[in-house]
Design a protein around this nucleic acid. Sequence first.
RNA 1: GGCGCCUUCGUCUAGUGGUUAGGACACUGGGUUUUCAUCCCAGUAAUCACGGGUUCGAAUCCCGUAGGCGCUACCA
Length: 427
Amino acid sequence: MNIKTRFAPSPTGIMHIGSVRTALYAYLVARHNKGTFTLRIEDTDQNRLVEGSVNDIIDSLKWLGLQFDEGPIYQSERKEVYEKYARELVSSGAAYEKDGAIWFKLPEDGKVIFTDIIGSRKIEFENSSQKDFVLLKSDGFPTYHLAHVVDDHLMETNPVIRAEEWLPSTPKHILLFKAFGWEAPDYAHIPLILGTDRSKLSKRHGAKGATEFRKDGFLAEAILNYMALLGWTPPSGKEILSLDEMIEEFDLKNVHIAPAVFDLTKLEWMNGEYIRKMSDMELTKRLQEFLVDHPAPEKIGPLVPLIKERIKTLADFVLLTNFITEEPEYDLSVFEKIKIVNQKQVLEKINEEMQKLGKDWKSDVFEKTFKDLATELDIKVGDMFQLIRIAVSGQSVTPPLFESIQILGEDEALKRVMNVAKKFPNF
RNA sequence: GGCGCCUUCGUCUAGUGGUUAGGACACUGGGUUUUCAUCCCAGUAAUCACGGGUUCGAAUCCCGUAGGCGCUACCA
């Protein structure tokens, strides 16, 4: 059978992260079966249109690498088509006009039975539990129900892949296909993605759009990988897999039936995995593209090997390195993570030792000095170096300590330690 | 309210009649790095929603209940 899938968002806002998964699955099915993937814009509700949304959707798909073969097809440009078919139903007696709209007449008895691809589950709806519904609105635009049936028939979409919120209206669609004398497609209703409160993921949960994740420094491949696994397990059991590997392994039959909670922490972990896996050169390139207004893009490269294992998102690069160019802001709670009781005195001691080091500190001397000091003051070596790290940078995670000081310069490092020792614990 | 779907560690999940219920994230502890991170090892964590069956034996099959969620628009 010829496989044609489509992603059919309505342009009522930015491309939501949940839509990314729907688009991805439709894309994977098309590619796996050497079929066609189409983008269709469902802009039939004139009141809810949001300017810029189509661009955001297309940009998101492009960024993610989910290239469509056909479209975008705009439903708003096909009004006559829908009207023609709606009138056809009026002629055949399956629909009627009322208040300037065309309504579908729901059969009084009988039931609709279909098998959803997801979970191969058989689903039944009694016609008596359904009501007549609008096909063509009085403004001449079709409702989702009419537009879906007409378009997916004309486009020969099969299977129809959409979110599970559509499941309750599927009998309407199947009845419509039947009224037209058309064969209904197979349906795959993808379970919802939930927020931490287990309700449908939305902006209320802080759920962002695809392009916002991009702005936050997430990688397209990590987003794709994470979203794919939120509701699907590949037969190989792999957790990290590329788009090509997903295409190879994907089958709607392995998509889960239960909804899944979106977990940002795991996404961050996965993004970090992708960053660490990348070559230094590639990561440098990505950072330069990401940090468009970085004051010195040529200085990013040398820092990459130092921070690669410490960042989870591209945006973390800034957090990790801005202490080099900017005076850090100190927060007592960061110091409190170190289990040293008399931190002020230790800081003063560190300051003294640093003064004695003179100019051009050497790595081995530096390390021996503070290891000895730790022994002398009876504190853990790890805590000693961590305290220096925080005094110099204001942060508990930085590039390697000695390298950080080298980049910063001995004078500046010393100045900061002195300053901290003096002010502690009142910043 | 009506209709529908769902229910294994906190989260993502493996599991299709016999497993010490496995893995991943997170968390905790330890090791490597004389420092953070990375990496490695270990550990905590699911009476498989609950109650009945069927069976020698059930997370797995059947029935029921509860809870959660979704839909219930001339929105999609």
